[in-house]
Simulated assay, not measured.
Amino acid sequence: MTTPFLNPRREIPDGMRFTEWRAADGWPLRSYAWPQPGTARGSMLFLTGRGDFIEKYLEVLIHWHGLGWNIAGFDWRGQGGSGRMLADPLICHQTDFDPLVDDLTSFVDRWIAETSAPHVIVAHSMGAHLTLRMLARRPEGIDAAVLASPMIGIRIKGVPIWLVGGLSRAATLIGLAERRISGRDIGDVGERMTSCPDRRADKLWWKATKPEIASGVPSWGWVRAAFASIARLPDTVLAVIRTPILLVAARGDPIVDVAAIEHAAALLPNAELTIIDGGGHEIMREADDRRLPVVARIDSFLALTS
């Protein structure tokens, strides 16, 4: 029997459990699992983007759990309920994305061993980028992947991307790597993340209710690390990732480069691409008229794996 939710975006579902696990270097990471009470159709690993926490995506996880998937995932190091990089927890900082790829690889190895097949990954933005990097390293055991608004290239409206890369390198060289790139959380400005005011309010509600999981603006070090990590996915690497992949994005995404996503889709040997009109970066948290067709497209794609 399905549990009723007054607001599914603001309630932890019955049966979802959070635990701490330690990365290979001892870093504390918050993970969660929401298994099926009976036989599952398969297991889904859900991965969030930069500065995210899993509570933002409860609505869509409830949907997929209702379709029979075991659900699992974790907060990336430096954000959510995982150990932070800096004394100021609201600065989203990294010096290198390689430890994030290592964390993901370790988690996937354990997850595959402990859960039922098929094993699929649904990942957003930075999480989608890191999924591609992991698949280039170890594709074994992953039956399909959905990459929503994948961070294959970065876009900042009105600013040449070469200038952003140059500024991040210069800031790091003069000792400003841990400084925030902006005085305000640019993710909360206007409709950049989602055009849905209710879902924007949900994010702020969670940050106020559980401030320990909140993150904010990226550091210059994070920006430089992101550019370096993107450079590790050249055309030659993408062209050998044979995992079935669905890429979905909004045409006007203000955060990631949609042209780069289209280019990657043409290179990946077993990829499908869906671009929607309108909406922000977080297309799984959009208003229903945009969100539901995206979720239906994902469901159709994943149906081929189970």
Rank of each mutant, 00 (worst) to 15 (best):
R179T: 04
I181G: 02
S168T: 06
P150L: 08
W111T: 00
P139E: 02
D102V: 13
R180A: 15
I154G: 06
G166R: 07
V159W: 11
K207S: 05
E191I: 13
D198G: 08
T209H: 14
H129Y: 02
A145H: 15
I174M: 11
I156M: 14
R184Y: 11
L167W: 13
I174K: 07
M134E: 12
R184T: 15
H124A: 07
L135W: 13
K207C: 03
T105K: 10
G175D: 11
R179F: 03
T131V: 10
A136G: 15
S149H: 02
T115H: 15
I121V: 12
R199H: 06
I174V: 15
M193Q: 15
G165W: 09
P139A: 11
L135Q: 13
I181V: 15
T105Q: 14
V101K: 01
L204N: 09
D103Q: 06
R155F: 12
W111K: 00
H124L: 11
I181F: 02
R200H: 02
D198K: 09
G190K: 08
A201Y: 05
G153V: 12
L135P: 14
I156F: 11
C196F: 05
A128W: 04
P211R: 04
V122C: 08
P197F: 10
I121P: 11
H129P: 01
R200C: 02
D109S: 14
A128H: 10
E212L: 01
D103A: 06
G127E: 10
K203V: 15
A170N: 01
L135G: 14
R110M: 07
L204H: 09
A177Q: 09
V122D: 00
D202Y: 02
A177V: 01
K207T: 10
W162G: 08
A201Q: 08
T105F: 03
T115W: 10
G183V: 06
I154R: 07
A171W: 01
P118Q: 08
V108R: 08
E178I: 00
G183N: 09
G166W: 06
E140V: 02
H129M: 15
L104S: 12
S149V: 07
S125M: 06
M126T: 15
V101A: 05
T131L: 09
A201V: 04
P211T: 03
I152K: 04
L100R: 00
A201W: 05
C196R: 00
H119G: 03
V159H: 12
T115C: 03
A177R: 08
R200E: 06
M151I: 02
C196Y: 05
V122G: 00
H119P: 03
G190C: 03
A177F: 00
S149D: 04
A136N: 15
R184D: 13
L163Q: 05
E212V: 01
R199W: 03
R199Y: 03
L204F: 06
A113P: 01
R179K: 14
R138V: 08
R133W: 07
M134K: 11
S195L: 01
V108L: 13
G183T: 05
P160Y: 03
L132N: 11
A128E: 07
L173Y: 03
R155S: 08
R192H: 06
D198V: 09
P150I: 10
D185M: 10
G165N: 13
G187C: 02
F107G: 03
G183I: 02
V108Y: 10
I121D: 01
E114R: 11
A128R: 06
T105C: 12
R110K: 14
S106M: 08
G165E: 15
G183L: 05
